[in-house]
Design a protein around this nucleic acid. Structure first.
Lengths: 139, 139
DNA sequence: CAGCATCCTCGTGGATACTG
DNA sequence: CAGTATCCACGAGGATGCTG
């Protein structure tokens, strides 16, 4: 996204379509973060309290340290999680949601619930779409 | 995501962390769809009624036909939008939300609102993070 | 334990040209 | 108008090895 342009360009904002908010950049800011492969999973695993790096890795199971580290950094950078280092030896670090991060969990929960309720409809739509050209009736 | 594995693998589901729903695959199904670059933008532009291909392209502005076509197909495949072809010449096609697609707009709206309310906090967190090592206090 | 560094693959998405 | 087809660049993300 913010690759070559430096800043996200906002299209002409045409007046049609009944004030449909065209390029709602703040939304992209959020989706670019939680739309990746691991962010939501990490956030949800911090919902019930702080977790250490290794614990998170075990909880998620199929994440590489590389991606865990990187995603944690990004979430931290955006102020969604807080990283705390305990000067023990060997070192101990834990991560927890910030207030901002916690506040994100609420709208996220709506999405989670929608997914739970509708993901089999989606799956059926997919097989229906794949089986025929388009034929089967939705709506 | 569903590249080589065929189906998404579900990690061991450890019993720790107070029943944190680890690999909530339905969520990934949703996020994989709306987490891409254009889906949400397209959906939001269909919120107020059907739109034709060209209209959508103009509304969004900086999308290529390739990505518009492809994203529309994916959304249609998942049963979120309905494609209607009018056998005129030259051909005319429009897209509209299905019931399923409409129902998704609600949880999505929560996310949009969160973004609007918090994206400057996120931006400030970012500059704060980038400026110092980590120093500045969140919470 | 909690990372960082490096290499490499592959999917997403942009640009461009062509068509029913 | 509403696509399809092709080529290509880039960045996300996996695998592996090393470190304070």
């Amino acid at each position: 996204m913010r690759s070559a342009e430096g800043i996200i360009r906002i299209p002409p904002m045409p007046a049609g379509a009944g004030a449909a908010l065209i390029a709602k950049c703040p939304v992209r800011d959020v989706l670019d973060r939680i739309g990746d492969k691991w962010s939501v999973l990490i956030l949800k695993n911090l919902e019930d309290g702080p977790q250490r790096f290794g614990a998170l890795k075990r909880l998620i199971g199929d994440i590489s340290q590389r991606m865990l580290t990187q995603t944690l950094r990004d979430l931290q950078r955006d102020g969604l999680i807080l990283r705390t280092v305990y000067p023990t030896v060997p070192p101990s670090v834990d991560y927890r949601l910030t207030k901002l991060g916690t506040s994100l969990m609420d709208p996220l929960e709506h999405l989670v619930q929608w997914s739970d309720r509708n993901h089999d409809k989606v799956r059926k739509a997919r097989v229906s779409f794949d089986r025929a050209g388009v034929s089967s009736g939705h709506q």
